[in-house]
Amino acid sequence: MENTQTVKTGMHRKNVTKKVVFVIVGILLGLLFLFPIVILLLNSFKNQRGIFMNVLGFPDAKTFTPNNYPQAFKFLDYTTSFMNSLVITIVSTALILLVSSMAAWVLVRYKTKASSVIFLLFAAAMLIPFQCVMLPLMSVGSALHMINRVGLVIMYVGFGTSMSIIMFHGFIKNVPEELEEAATIDGCNSIQLFFIIVVPLLKTIMITVAILNVMWIWNDYLLPSLVINKAGWQTLPLKTYLFFGQFSKRWDLASAGLMLCIIPIVVFYLACQKYIVKGVTDGAIK
């Protein structure tokens, strides 16, 4: 009896030591991962002299300034660029969800030759890197007057369909068809069948596909840099790039500008962490 007691406390002690080691290692690694963002944040509250004299420390009475933020805000034309990014991301993602789920549904439900060939085409296109399409796309784009925001959204839809159709396809395959058959007998037409019966069943996969597309479109730089050529149309990544060209040695303004771009992403992450992690896991395993 006493013997087992000793073994147990021994085990217990060993477990506690293990936990303490994990916590310490965890804290150190966590700090290492946060370091770049935290040091950027600290410096965004220093004046130029503060960054030059003491880049590693906290801002003090002489070097503290909140003024980098309003200035960076102005130079980034933040409200406009933010809204441009937001509208382009939301509209593109909504359209991608709509057209891809429609396409994936019929691609699953029709077991014809055409259906499998078209699905294979969408899947194979996942292998094409953007640089391969970029130059001819600009020819097509200018011929069709698509070098503007509407054109950009259409391009995102074109690029987004492949991955989204594959994901919807994988999901719909496991949705039983009986419900749709019953609804057809009850007199539903195609549109009603899809929007009333099918779409509600796709909620989880819709969220996953939406998140993957939002993450990509919000951060995309190269495509908008080729398609957007008017000052008032620029997205946040475009404006950030131009801003850096102007202020490459002004880390006081640059760090505040970067923080202004990073903060919305972190807020979005904290708000939807659960969905984001699930979306990324599902997206990778596909």
Binding site: M102, W105, V133, L135, P136, G158, T161
Partner: peptide
């Protein structure tokens, strides 16, 4: 089949397929 496929297929052909072939 073709109605539901059309929007995605047209966008995809215009933005990915045709430019790839042109490339």
């Amino acid at each position: 089949f073709w109605l539901f496929l059309a929007p995605a297929l047209i966008a995809f052909a215009l933005i990915v397929l045709i430019p790839t072939i042109m490339g």
